[in-house]
């Protein structure tokens, strides 16, 4: 019993990752939009679990607050406000399904092969992990501080570009949805 618990503790990341994939699958395949959102919520919670199991508490909590708290609620609002029955009736792309499945299968095989060779290949000398100095950095500085250094020092420019992207998304939504133009 104890050894089982120990095993679970060691493989928390994998467990959460599988849960996240399951949630994402529910989200994609569910016929009902509310079920989709719940699948999404489940996936986001599991990703937060992934972060926590990697020792990134700040990211995990932020994930919980922003995705599970904010964005899922927003999605639920949209699902309730927008009539979705029409979208369900229109069945498109039926003829393409076999080709799509074939392509997905081929892609799956290719990527499994790539990762297999990378991790277990004949010449695999070191496991595929984050570099040591990234990991040790986190211990000395603490989590939130690490994130802030990343955002405001090293990745300042992408961070600022991202803020402009959000502004543009806002403006674009208004442009496409506004009722009247002069």
């Amino acid at each position: 019993m104890e050894s089982l618990l120990l095993k679970i503790g060691q493989n928390l990341f994998l467990i959460f990752a599988v849960m996240a994939l399951a949630g994402a699958a529910v989200m994609v395949f569910a016929r009902n939009a509310v079920h989709s959102v719940i699948g999404f919520l489940f996936a986001m919670l599991s990703v937060a679990g992934c972060y926590l199991s990697l020792g990134a508490e700040f990211m995990g909590v932020a994930q919980l607050l922003i995705y599970a708290g904010g964005i899922v609620v927003l999605f639920l609002f949209v699902v309730m406000l927008v009539e979705l029955s029409k979208a369900r009736e229109a069945r498109r792309f039926q003829g393409q399904t076999p080709f799509a499945l074939l392509l997905v299968g081929a892609g799956l095989v290719a990527f499994v092969g790539i990762f297999w060779q990378t991790i277990f290949g004949a010449s695999a000398t070191e496991p595929l992990t984050l570099s040591q100095n990234l990991v040790s950095h986190g211990e000395t500085l603490g989590n939130a501080q690490m994130v802030s250094r990343g955002l405001f020092a090293e990745y300042l420019l992408p961070f600022e570009i991202l803020s402009v992207i959000l502004l543009v998304a806002l403006v674009g939504a208004v442009v496409l949805a506004k009722a009247e133009r002069v």
């Binding site: 990762f115 060779q117 990378t118 004949a122 010449s123």
Partner: peptide
Amino acid sequence: ATPNHTLLVFA
């Protein structure tokens, strides 16, 4: 990059 990473780099 080590030899077992070649496929990863290619992809």
